[in-house]
Amino acid sequence: MAFEPPERLVRALGETYGDAVAARRLGQLPELAEAAVTGLGLTVDRVQAPGGRSSLVLLVWRQDGTAAALKLAPAEARPELERDALRHWAGWGAAQLLPPDTSSDAARLLPPDAASALLLERLHPEVSLRSLPEAKALLEAAGTLRRLWVEPPAAHAFESVAARTERQSVPMRGELPPELAPLAAAALEARDHLTASASEELLLHGNFRQSKVLSAERAPWLTVGPEPVVGERAYDLARLVRDRVEDLIAAPSGASVARRRVNKLADALDVDPARLHGWTLFRAVESGLRARAAGRTEEAELLLEFATWL
Rank of each mutant, 00 (worst) to 15 (best):
A2D: 15
E4R: 14
P6K: 04
R8A: 13
L9K: 03
L9N: 04
L9V: 08
R11C: 01
L13R: 06
G14S: 07
Y17L: 15
D19N: 11
V21Y: 10
R25F: 11
R25H: 12
L26W: 10
G27A: 15
L29N: 04
P30T: 06
A33F: 07
T38E: 13
G39K: 04
G39L: 04
G41V: 00
V44D: 01
D45G: 13
A49N: 11
R53K: 14
W61R: 15
W61S: 15
R62E: 04
R62V: 06
Q63K: 11
D64L: 10
G65C: 11
A67D: 14
A75M: 07
A77P: 09
R78D: 11
E80D: 15
A85F: 07
P99H: 02
S104F: 00
L109D: 13
P112R: 09
D113P: 08
A114N: 05
S116G: 10
S116W: 07
L120A: 11
L123C: 05
P125R: 10
V127I: 14
L129W: 03
P133S: 04
P133R: 02
A137M: 05
A142F: 02
G143H: 11
T144H: 00
T144R: 06
L145C: 01
L145E: 00
R147C: 13
P152L: 04
A154S: 12
A154P: 03
E159V: 12
E159I: 08
E159R: 12
A163L: 08
R167T: 11
V170L: 14
P171G: 06
M172H: 10
G174T: 10
P177H: 02
P177D: 09
L180F: 09
P182Q: 00
A184T: 05
A186I: 00
R191C: 05
L194W: 07
L194Q: 12
S197R: 12
S197D: 08
L204K: 00
G206K: 09
Q210N: 10
S211L: 07
K212M: 07
L214Q: 11
A216Q: 04
R218Y: 01
P220L: 01
G225E: 14
P226G: 02
P228R: 07
V230F: 08
A234W: 09
A234P: 07
Y235D: 13
D236K: 08
A238T: 03
R242P: 00
R242T: 09
D243C: 10
R244P: 05
V245E: 11
E246F: 06
V257F: 04
R259A: 15
R260I: 00
V262F: 05
K264I: 00
L265F: 07
L265A: 06
A266H: 11
L269A: 14
D270H: 12
L276Q: 08
H277T: 13
G278P: 04
W279L: 03
W279H: 05
T280I: 00
L281P: 09
A284E: 10
E286I: 00
A294W: 14
L302W: 14
L304Q: 07
T308E: 12
W309N: 08
